[in-house]
Nucleic acid binder design. Sequence first.
DNA 1: GCAAAAGTGTTAGGTATACACCCATGC
DNA 2: GCATGGGTGTATACCTAACACTTTTGC
Lengths: 223, 223
Amino acid sequence: MKQAPANTRFAAVAVDIVIFTIIDDVLCVLLGIVDRPPHYQNIEACIGGLVEVNETTEAALHRHLQTKTTLQNLYIEQLYTFSEIERDKRNRVISVSYLGLVRQSEDVTSLPEGLRWCPVHELPKLAYDHSDMFAVAYSRLKGKLAYTTIAQFLLPKTFTLTELQRVYELITGAHIDKRNFRKKLLSLDVVKETGRMQEGMKNRPAALYTFKTTKLVELPLLT
Amino acid sequence: MKQAPANTRFAAVAVDIVIFTIIDDVLCVLLGIVDRPPHYQNIEACIGGLVEVNETTEAALHRHLQTKTTLQNLYIEQLYTFSEIERDKRNRVISVSYLGLVRQSEDVTSLPEGLRWCPVHELPKLAYDHSDMFAVAYSRLKGKLAYTTIAQFLLPKTFTLTELQRVYELITGAHIDKRNFRKKLLSLDVVKETGRMQEGMKNRPAALYTFKTTKLVELPLLT
DNA sequence: GCAAAAGTGTTAGGTATACACCCATGC
DNA sequence: GCATGGGTGTATACCTAACACTTTTGC
């Protein structure tokens, strides 16, 4: 195993991830119970864990996600590195934080013991500096919504245009005109009709769309 | 001094900074000679250094800037954290990188031995993963130029509108119409006339402007 | 008076916004 | 047939983009 330089026994490096999803028309974030007396008891935080000497921060993140959740196919991007000396009152830990998005689907709601989806508007005070971390993540999400197709990672692979519009409305908090939204979106040439229709609705069924690519595309989706 | 957890003797954490400035109408980046045999000889890199256990990454960055350069009043923002295991062939080092901008002024060109300003279009292959780091920094700079007033940190405190326009043209590589640029800029209400004029020009002297605030302001400065 | 850069308005085309009604389905 | 959300077009205001000449200064 590759060693750190002998004279630089350093702080631990950790990764933490702020994971968003939409459940029942509410934007939620994944929180886990922290139980680390004396400083952190009866308090929640984003999930994460230490980085080993022989793994990248991305590898560490995936390892912690696998051992602590059953979530699959997340969209992940690096967010910010937090290094305040007292950010973890127990030890010196530098944290590389990530933003994660999970598509809406059934298995999202089946979480292991100790984890929960918390609506972002009911967020409690979090352990460590995770309240700041959440704020950075939420701000990044809002920002990227406007000029990328990041919303796709909060929706099922196929979705109705109304569902996509709701993602924008939920996260920006603003009402969007249905006709203008569709006109703009279709002009950007990033989604295509699947030809299939929503089923089991008690009203007129909506056409199902899908993004042309699962990559994040940069373009001004909202003005 | 606060200790790292006993069981987490970790890789070193470093900071590195990609510093841009404009010299003689050319966008340049600060490089320093690296001399670390056997892997890194006769090669340049961005400046940086290790983070100590009892300092934040920002504090470490300022410490290394002070000891290695005479630059003052930089604009600095965190960029990205690089953690590839082999990114430094000598030891495991995670690097928190920063973007730095220095205003054009005389003292910018008086650099200590071993440092130089390299035009971004003549950039050599850099040590470690600093070529990637540069690419991320350059991309961030281009991106933020479009929707913030970040250009102010590449200009003297007072400047002419033509100088400001040149910053945009240099970094985006696109020609901008003078009349449209001025109209847009003035409508955004971020700069004000100082009332003073450029002196010593062999042509008509230009009015000197200044930004209303030295904070970074977010707004669409370019379409 | 000539060279060099500063400064200034108008028009046309495209984009954003505001707005209301009919349609398809389940019950 | 009624309640529910799906789906569609137009008119206006605004913003963007293209474009050329006069002004001021140093030499």
